[in-house]
Structures are given as C-alpha cells and as structure tokens.
Amino acid sequence: MIRIVEVKKVFNAGKPNEFAAIQGISLNLEDQKATVLKGPSGSGKTTLLSLIGCMARPTGGRIWLQEREITSLPERFLTEIRRKTFGFVFQQPNLIKGLTALENALLPAYPLGEPYGDIKKRGLRLFDLLDIGPKAQSKVEWLSGGEAQRVTIARALINDPAIIIADEPTAHLDTTRSREFMDILGRLKGEGKTLILSSHDPLVFESPVVDRVIQVRDGRIESETE
C-alpha cells in the first residue's frame, strides 16, 4: 500500500517563476491494483508519479511505502528503494543509443552486484515473455517504436519490482501497439504487480486492466472512478 498525505510540490520556490505542480494531494494506492492518473498536460500527473517513485522529494506532506515513510530518506536510500521496488516506463523510451536492446534492459541491475550471467539469463527470459527475444542483440536505434517500448518494459522488470510506474506509456504508440501494451500490463497485474499509470489516452483508462481512475487537474484530485 502506498499512502500519500497532503503532498505538495513547488518548483522554483521563492523565484518569480514559482510554480506549484501538486497542491496538497492525499491518496491511498492499493497493492496489486492498476491505477491511472488521468488529466490534461500540465495537470501534475508526471510530478505525482515521480514523487511516488522516489525520483523527487515533495515540498510538503508525507508518502509512506507500506509502513515506511520515504519522504525524509537520504538520496542513497531513495535510490535503493527506487531500484528494488519500482520499475519505470517513461513517456519517451529513454534507451541508451549504441547499446543493444538487451544491454539497455540489464542496466538497472548492474549496480546491484549480481553476476552478469544471472542478470543476462533473467533479461533473455523477459525478452522471450515480451516476444522480443530475436531483438536482444539489436542496437536500440534499429528497433520500431513498439519494440523499443517493450525493451523499456523489460528494463522496468529486470529487478523484479513490486510496482510498475508508467508515464504516458502509449503516447507514441499506435492503437494496436497500445492494446498490446495494455495486455502486457494485464499479465503483469495477474502476476501480482501493482501498476500506477498516467495517461489521457482512453485506450489506457478505459482498459479492463485498470481498477481505478483518478482525475487530476491543476495539481489537485478532481474526481475518482473505480
């Protein structure tokens, strides 16, 4: 369970261009459910995701991950939580050019100190599960949009995280690829993963995979549907 209490995030505080992206959001996110944060651009979805995923600290409020309060932890601990608990699928694939698809997917596991052979085996298994096995040794710049998206999913799953965070995951996919992506998420949810997504794509928030849709606007929760 993730518990968010009165969380605020202000950018450029005290400067003329000060901007409050999140203005006091309280929310409980249950385990093994799929939640979508829905709202227009600039509504604060991505900021909220980055706060939940320990990528940034809130300006005010608290966030609990299970029983652990994470907002006041030093960077080292946040990184530790980030790489073991969360898997990220970004709006852009954010793959590192020049490396192969498999090398990209293995990157989050490198600093954990597991033997390379074990990580590679796990990576290849994920590639097979995501139907991109033959692309493992291809350079990422040769991949199609859909293939790149799957590589990012493999990368998000390499450390077997409990929670998958996906920010506008279908923004650059056509309808077929978007449906395939939601099917993959459905499978992951079936395996017990918690999914937290942001999107304004009906293919995502109307998908049967999704349990809960939270409407965000101007950094506040506007409404909620289950």
């Binding site: 590192i96 020049g98 490396l99 990157l107 596991a109 600093p111 954990l112 100190g113 390379y116 990580i119």
Partner: peptide, 23 residues
C-alpha cells in the same frame, strides 16, 4: 565482497560498451 566485485565488473562492462560506441 563478491557482490562488490561483480558490481564493479558490471559497471566496467557498461563503460567499455559505452566507449566502443564512439570508436
């Protein structure tokens, strides 16, 4: 200790792969 060495090996592995990109 073993994990530390593996970690360094993995990071080195990435470094070399990254360097080879700009041969």
């Amino acid at each position: 200790m073993g994990a530390r060495i593996e970690r360094q090996k993995n990071i080195l592995d990435y470094t070399l792969a990254a360097l080879l990109r700009r041969k």
